[in-house]
Design a binder for these strands. Structure first.
Lengths: 188, 188
DNA sequence: CTCTTTTGCGACATAAGTGTCTCAAAAGAC
DNA sequence: GTCTTTTGAGACACTTATGTCGCAAAAGAG
């Protein structure tokens, strides 16, 4: 039984998102391999988390590239961003459980990622699509929070995976108040 | 130097929110007491987290009671809820780092709390104030996510504490898109 | 099929963190 | 001021988890 490292990483990340204090022994059991094998791939918790983060940064980078945030309206770009983030969401949810200082301080890649998302919100504000009443910093934080929250809800079965993109962007763009909400076609 | 248990709990929770894997030794140092004293108040990590959760449930219960969610419009109630949650937000942020299964499974109090928030969103949907396009389950999850995200942002200095209530409810009610946003007075 | 690589198991060594205890010092109460 | 309570420090015992190793079995490659 040869294990695909990426698959192991994903399964381990999933388990850790639910049980952030899990031991290596517990993780190994949960994903169906031996502790020795887990150790051969990720020599301890530190290295496992570092691999998760590395993977998250790489995938977020790819997602952002695929989303081409400078093209089209800011609203369209936000849709593309959310869709592109979906496969990375479980990783982001896990990183949230490790504390807020990890992303910013341990991997330089986050700075660039944050800056690009921040710039999207700023662009939307400059173009008049997005309100200037809420700071771009808060909007970026809110975006991450909603993505992580959605990932957890999907994982726990409270909401359907197919609604991921829609529920985040709909709430982020239009909020919950009925008054002022666009009809279904106005977004595009 | 006599330590106030509640104050210790608060300080420990703050530290743990930033460093979820911190040892008791590290926590004790960070909050300025000895490990022995920390142990006298909270006999180990398990007991510390249990105290945090107990405190969070109690405070959320009080917050919900103070917010009187059945009174007035759902929109008004949401404002009151967010304001009332503010002092509990750092505890909620910490509980997020401990995994999503902790709140629902370890303390029965969360069920009641969740149900009351869920009911607020449902009430808003029934009255036509809130859109039926987004599930109440997602809205409840999103509410928690934004509260935790705001708590982290305030803690890290990225946004100002005085903006807590406004930035959450504004985003949750109206979203970020300029089109369709109410003027400043339409909320009340 | 053979040969190579990967894996799991079990045992034990090692490391890190927690629990416990004593006692003097510090702080609180009156 | 005296007496009581709380605290911190240090030492050591205990617990838990991780690291390491050898080797046979399982799996993969050709």
């Amino acid at each position: 039984m040869t294990s695909d490292r990426d698959q192991l990483l994903r399964a381990a990340a999933d388990h850790l998102a639910r049980r952030p204090n899990a031991t290596q022994d517990e993780i190994a059991k949960a994903i169906g391999i031996s502790r020795a094998t887990l150790h051969r791939h990720f020599a301890g918790r530190r290295e496992l988390l570092a691999a998760v983060e590395e993977s998250a940064v790489t995938r977020m980078d790819e997602a952002l590239r695929a989303a081409r945030l400078e093209e089209g309206t800011a609203t369209q770009a936000l849709h593309r961003l959310t869709t592109a983030c979906e496969p990375v969401a479980p990783f982001l949810a896990l990183l949230y459980t490790q504390g807020q200082d990890i992303p910013e301080q341990t991997h330089p890649g986050w700075e660039d990622i944050d800056e690009r998302i921040l710039e999207l919100f700023r662009r939307g504000q400059r173009s008049g699509e997005f309100t200037p009443d809420l700071s771009a910093a808060w909007l970026t934080e809110a975006f991450y929070s909603l993505v992580a929250g959605a990932a957890w809800s999907v994982q726990s079965g409270r909401v359907a995976a197919r609604d991921f993109q829609h529920m985040i962007t709909d709430l982020l763009l239009h909020g919950v108040a009925s008054a002022g909400r666009p009809s279904r076609e106005t977004d595009r």
